[in-house]
Simulated assay, not measured.
Amino acid sequence: MRYAICFTPTPSDPLTLVAANWLGRNVYSGEIVEPPRIRGLGIHEVAFHTALPRRYGFHAVLKAPFRLADPTSEPALLRDLMRYAGTLTPFELPPLEIAKLGNVFGLVPSYPSTALNYLAAALVQEFDRFRAPLSEAEIDCSDPDGLSAPQFTNLHRWGCAHVMDEFRFQMLLTGPVGPADMSRMEQVLHDFFGPVLAEPVAVTNVALMMEEGSGGPFRVHSLHPMGKVSARKIA
């Protein structure tokens, strides 16, 4: 079983609901959602192109999936994450936009966010004590030969290549898309997600996500509100 610390909007956020409809699975309940009928894209094409992000659920990774180190435990992780989240200040992300990320599509901020980068780096460092060392198989899966020198260093120091200066916030919407389908998929995504991408995104919680079994889908285990309780009540 693995855990990850992530950002995902609240259960009732319109973006959460639209993403669940697109991916075919609700990241909170784990329930399967009927695939949408989209003009210009067949229902089986949607299911095929969303298979990879459907397993991981709608989220952006802040601390990559990890197995718990001995002698840590889930209750200790929950306690410390709840405590630490209370020390963080909520903030807003710039509006998200559809982006090509190599041969996949995802949502990224329309411009950089210093607060976001700080949050990701802080969580990676603060909770590294809960992370078991990577196995040789896990290192091989990260394609170490294809990493830059900073990414390779990150992989061995923090268990993930894409942290610190290499961190990029992204909420994946597809798996690999072939060149012939790129333009069509991009237009479909703009049409489907456009209505919920106009406003800034509130970052008021961090989510602990949990893998169901070994290699199973991820779902939200718990949301941890940022900021002191008194401040949240006033807000």
Rank of each mutant, 00 (worst) to 15 (best):
S110C: 12
G194Y: 04
V18T: 10
T50G: 04
I234D: 15
M226Q: 00
R184I: 08
F7T: 01
A120W: 02
F167T: 01
R25W: 00
P112Q: 04
S230L: 13
A47M: 12
S110A: 13
L81W: 04
G106W: 00
A76I: 09
E186D: 11
P112R: 05
V124T: 09
Y118F: 14
V61F: 11
F66P: 03
A60P: 03
P11C: 06
L197V: 10
L88F: 02
A198C: 13
R131S: 06
L52D: 13
I234R: 15
E34V: 06
A121T: 11
G194E: 09
H162W: 14
F105P: 05
G178I: 15
V188F: 03
V196N: 09
R232L: 11
L119P: 02
G216Q: 03
L93A: 00
V27T: 02
Y3N: 03
G213H: 06
Y118A: 15
P176S: 12
H44N: 14
L23S: 05
R67G: 14
K228V: 14
V220N: 04
F127G: 04
R54W: 02
I38G: 02
F130D: 01
S222F: 08
P150F: 06
R157T: 09
P195R: 02
V206C: 05
F218D: 00
P144K: 09
R232Y: 08
P35Q: 07
A20T: 05
P71H: 09
Q125T: 15
P144L: 08
N26A: 03
S222W: 02
C141T: 14
K63P: 07
F7P: 00
R168L: 12
V229T: 14
G146R: 10
T50D: 02
L107T: 01
L107N: 04
V220K: 01
P36R: 02
L147D: 00
K63S: 08
I43Q: 12
N21Y: 11
P65V: 04
A85S: 06
K100H: 15
Q125K: 15
P144Q: 04
F130Q: 00
L134F: 07
F91D: 04
R232K: 11
V108L: 09
L223D: 00
P95G: 06
F58L: 03
L88W: 03
A60W: 03
V33E: 09
I43D: 10
E34R: 10
F193A: 11
T89H: 11
G178N: 14
S183T: 15
M210A: 14
E45H: 02
S12N: 13
I38Q: 02
A85V: 07
T87V: 03
L107K: 06
G215L: 00
E34W: 01
T16K: 03
E126Q: 14
A122I: 11
P94N: 07
R37D: 13
T204Y: 09
G24A: 03
E186S: 10
D165N: 14
